[in-house]
Design a protein around this nucleic acid. Structure first.
Lengths: 182, 182, 182, 182
DNA sequence: GCTTAATCGAGACGGTACGTCGTGTCTTTGC
DNA sequence: GCAAAGACACGACGTACCGTCTCGATTAAGC
């Protein structure tokens, strides 16, 4: 990570432009280097693949952007969970993030370290906030609870079985709350 | 689909051997052709990409293998759902299917038709069986119910957040049944 | 040597143009391919290095051009030898041949086969003609005689110690004839 | 030439080691710098190319080694010439010198200054000694005479048409002496 | 003797070329 | 008469050097 700051920035800008133009499968180290006005070695010195470049760019952008995910607490669990689910849906459906995450999980079986980074830095904050809210509500096992809440969201995102409508989210959250309230 | 039967078979065999040796990203049209003892043109005539070849091979294999997914009915909903979830887990964790499905969903945003085929022919049978069992149990919305059951399974598979232990499945199924029983 | 004829020709044309523009050290496989409108693989399939391409181009050109080197016989040995030396000088001082031969001999220690081809196909005809003329003149050892005649020519060419003036050639030939006439 | 003495020495040592390992075409500025434990800039400050480094190293070595080439005078011209030819052959066939000289002459058309240095400092002493011996023998034109003697030697060296056997040298010297004795 | 400036090593950097592999199309060849 | 074999233009791969540059650390000189 010892590349000069300006170079890193140019590369990040380049990969974000390119992914919008050609998609993730169209990204190449050569293309990124050319667009960034950098030598190929400079790219290879820091990143392993176009996907790493994109991941880094998105992580950097998201770290710059969001302060921290706040845990809302209006008193009504369902309302708060809807807010948190909305946040996750926004992340999952942002086109470059969407495509990037799909390709990252495609490579999960092959590249051990890759998944950790993705999860830790992009998904964890949202999950942690959800778990925190469950705990505050007195739910015993916040882990499985969060899984029950997020699972169908990921399922719908991954397989595109239907849209993330207001209504669907509301129904789904209601079901989950129901499952835990007994 | 007009290639000679023996050629189709040789290609299927070839791609299954290759994916075990080099993984999905290592598959190439050239490699498949060579291994199958076929000309490249023969492969290109029928399939669009190595992923299509693999998908075709796996679909063919699975259609040959399983007659149809049966809907179990022991009287106990939880028990029957566990059986159905076990079936889906088996499909998701079979190494070549696992890798192939990850790569297929990675390309979902780019190639519209691809996802339908995957879903319709590999995933649907299991889902249909689950929905059928829910309906038999008098659950009103079997669709959302199936989503609630399968979502966390896919989540755990996709992100590898934990193993599919007996215990986890049992707990998860219990939670879902609970959510729907009120 | 199985490349299509038109491709061979385009490559030959390309390398001859390029060597005139950038010199032998400036030749690259990539450059030749680009100029010829060919893929790199096509070049690599047939030739090992830019020098081989150039050598091939020059050999082809020379074979097309000269029928055969004739052995002149005016009766006067000195006169005939001057004609033959003139021929060799012309070959040695043609700019692309000049540069190419220098680079080929530079690589002689490293690449065994290279020298044979050069000698056999570019230099041999002239040498053979010289030896033939010596034999016709009754000189016993035509080999050493040819060496005595050509050695100083190569020396002057290689080290550029002086020009190939009419006068120098005449003097040199006279000395050689003298050496053999006893 | 203002690099520190120890640095010069380390560079010379480095290039001589390297040329033995990888040959002249394998020499690189980067490699020389690394082997010498010097920065690239230090090398570039003093030399223009790996060939210049090698040339400098060989010249330095030869200047340290030989006092001066002596002109032998046993009374027998042929004997003395054989001694001088032996010296030149030794220089031409020393592997690093051999390779270096071939590559230097390859670049003669492109780099004007290069050849002078080579000739002046590596070849001249031998040539001068030969000319001196001819003059002492009363040969009128010592220049052409030396060319007649050395030409075939260079020819044989350059094109590797045969070995420098005792016998060949003896025969050749005899022929030359014959040519001049009339 | 202490600083101030030059010099060195190390190596990042934008490039070009390397030699290889795979793409998708097109041509030849042998069964 | 079709399918294998593979030539072909193309583009990306990942590596090696190029020649220039920017860094600190180390000297060596000037004060």
């Amino acid at each position: 990570m010892s590349v000069r700051v300006s170079t890193r920035d140019r590369v990040h800008r380049a990969v974000l432009e390119l992914v919008a133009e050609v998609g993730v499968p169209g990204l190449t180290m050569e293309g990124v280097a050319a667009r960034a006005g950098a030598g190929k070695q400079t790219i290879y010195r820091t990143w392993d693949s176009p996907l790493h470049v994109l991941l880094d760019a998105l992580l950097t952008a998201s770290q710059d952007a969001d302060g921290r995910v706040e845990v809302p607490d209006t008193g009504d669990l369902a309302t708060d969970l809807r807010v948190l689910v909305d946040g996750m849906v926004a992340e999952l459906t942002d086109p470059p993030s969407d495509a990037m995450m799909r390709h990252v999980v495609a490579l999960l079986p092959d590249r051990p370290g890759l998944g950790e980074e993705l999860q830790e830095r992009l998904l964890r904050p949202q999950v942690a906030a959800i778990e925190a809210r469950f705990e505050r509500a007195g739910v015993a096992e916040s882990g499985p609870a969060a899984e029950l809440l997020l699972g169908p969201v990921f399922h719908r995102w991954l397989l595109r079985t239907g849209p993330f409508s207001e209504q669907w989210i509301a129904t789904h959250v209601r079901l989950v709350v129901q499952a835990l309230s007994t």
